[in-house]
Each structure stands twice: as C-alpha cells, then as structure tokens.
C-alpha cells in the first residue's frame, strides 16, 4: 500500500495532465499584473499567462487551466502534495527552496528586487534614512529575511508587522500603522494602485535584494520539468527571433532555420518532450512571445507602468536569455 501510493509521485505528470484535460496552476491571491482575477473571475497577469502558455503547448487551448489561489505560506505544500501541477506565483528562486523542498525552479520569468514604499510626506529619499521605521509586510516570504538583513547590516533599528495576506498589509499601511511597505518592487507598484491616494506614496530607489521570480514544479519528473523550462525559453526565443502572435503564421514559412526549428517545420523537438512538434507555434499563437506578455500585463501602457529594465532581452541590455532550440 505504502509503496503503491509512493510510486504515484513518479508517474509522468504529463500523462496525468493530459488525462484530466487541464493544468492545475497555483497563483497568488491577487497581485495586479502577475496573477489577478477580474470581477468575472477571469485570471490575468504575467504568471497566469505562463500557465496559459503551458496549456497552449499541451492542449492547443490556453483556457485549459484551472487556477488555485495560494498564500505565500501554502504555496510549496500545495505543489509538494501535487494539489497544483505547476506553481506560477511570483516565487523567488533561492538555494534552500531549490534543494530542500523537493522542488525545481524552471527559470526566471521576472527579475525583481525588494524595494520600499513610503509616504512622500515623510520626506525620506533613501532607504538608509529609515532608521527606527515601522515596516509592514507579508509573512512567509523572503521579504521578511531581506528586511532583517538590510537593517542589521546598516545598524538601524526597526519594527516589523507581518500579515498573512497582502490585502491586510495594504490596509494597515494605508491606516498609517506602518511608515514603510516593503515587498518586491513589482508588487509595490501593483499594490500602490489599491491605496486611497496612490499619488501620495513613492517607491525608494534602493533595491535591497535579488528576487528572481519564476515557475516551480515538483522534483523527480524530468519530462515535466523540461516542458516547464522550455515553455518559458520558447517565449524568450520567439521575442528574440521577432516572432509574435500576429506574424507567427507567416513566420512558419520563414527561411530562417532557427525559426523553422522553433515552430516545428524542421526537426522533432516537441516530440522529445512528449508534445507535438508545433508546441512553440501554439504558445506564440495563443499567448504571444515574452515581450508581448510583458507589455500586456505590466508594461509602460498598463496601470503598473513598469519598464523592461532587467527583464529586457540580453541583446538589449537585460537579463532575459534563452538557450537555443536546436
């Protein structure tokens, strides 16, 4: 009995997912731009689009995803227990998480760093002036640890008020329980929109940590891990090769061998990971390349208004770099 149940963990995830007909995707409880439900319950965001890209690659249908909102605390347990097939929830890749939790990080779909938001009326211009500040944040995140490290390193006293859910952090900060709100910089821009007067608050220039956010899968299933990695790489490669959701059909006839390989006109790259050979075509057709996904969810034309920065392609001074498909 014990052995039979245990071996279930090693069964191919791809077969399970194909059998049930959808991907169960773990997302946040509501972070605009990354994973956020609208009033009709439709999820959107960068992390949500990643899961849709996976669904597109497997089922040729970006809607074949079910979302499970998870708190920071619940997320790893939900993935470890198999409650979700993939965790795409602005999760920081750290060594301990990668090595001790039985999980694998499949890549970085957003390079982030932790920042501080304060009221403009405080007259503070640098994080180094925050000595003695009261700081609101979420429990169960790397944020708590970074704050502790930063204030200890700079020998500044502080008080931390840590809430279970992001909504309560925003409320408490808005009620002036805290002087400072800290989380990943992208999160600060997103949560600022929920404040009573977003214009009265500013994000300080210091970024105190590296927060590479990316999707996570269970350890022990290399095929599923490969799919998780290459869905992301396909989107980055597509941007680099100039393939978008608008021109992907024409590009299928391109003479560029790189594009031919990616879109399945040459070689059998999809079959090698248990997918069809037009897997990348499906992703780009339905969800778009990485740049399109970024612009749509968090880019300068969205309420978040985040510039590409570190998340630009490597060829444009950023860090987004994908191994070639060959």
């Amino acid at each position: 009995m014990g052995v039979a149940a245990a071996s279930g963990a090693n069964a191919a995830k791809l077969d399970d997912v194909k059998a049930k007909g959808f991907i169960q995707c773990g997302v946040s409880q509501g972070l605009p731009g990354f994973s956020n439900p609208d009033s009709a319950g439709n999820w959107s965001g960068l992390d949500v689009d990643y899961c849709r890209a996976m669904a597109a690659a497997i089922f040729d249908d970006p809607q074949a995803v079910k979302f499970t909102p998870l708190s920071a605390k619940e997320r790893f347990t939900a993935l470890q227990s198999g409650e979700v097939d993939v965790l795409s929830r602005n999760t920081t890749w750290t060594m301990s998480r990668d090595t001790q939790l039985g999980l694998n990080f499949a890549g970085v779909n957003y390079y982030d760093g932790q920042g501080f938001m304060v009221r403009k009326s405080l007259g503070v211009t640098s994080a180094l002036e925050l000595s003695g500040a009261r700081i609101c944040t979420n429990t169960g995140t790397t944020t708590e640890l970074n704050v502790a490290d930063y204030f200890r390193a700079n020998n500044m006293p502080y008080e931390i008020v840590a809430f279970e859910k992001a909504d309560e952090v925003v409320q408490a900060y808005d009620a002036k329980r805290c002087d400072v709100y800290t989380t990943d910089a992208s999160g600060l821009y997103a949560q600022r929109l929920k404040l009573t007067n977003p214009g009265e608050h500013m994000v300080l220039p210091e970024i105190i940590s590296k927060e590479p956010l990316g999707p996570v899968v269970q350890q022990g299933d290399d095929q599923w891990f490969n799919i998780a990695k290459w869905v992301h790489f396909a989107q980055v490669n597509a941007e680099e090769l100039g393939v978008t959701s608008a021109n992907v059909d024409e590009m299928k006839n391109s003479d560029n061998p790189s594009i031919k390989r990616m879109l399945g006109a040459e070689g059998a790259f999809g079959e090698a990971v248990g997918l069809s050979n037009d897997w990348a075509y499906r992703i780009i057709k339905h969800v778009g390349n990485y740049g399109e996904m970024f612009e749509r969810n968090v880019g300068p034309d969205t309420p978040l208004g985040i510039s590409r920065g570190l998340n630009a392609l490597w060829s444009q001074g950023g860090l987004q770099y994908a191994p070639p498909i060959r």
Partner: peptide
C-alpha cells in the same frame, strides 16, 4: 503566525 513563517522558510510542513 510565527510557525507559518518558519514553515515557509524551511518547507518543513
């Protein structure tokens, strides 16, 4: 609350 943070940092659910 504290246990939740410990749980998340260590993954020892």
């Amino acid at each position: 609350s504290v246990g939740g943070t410990v749980l998340n940092q260590t993954g020892q659910a």
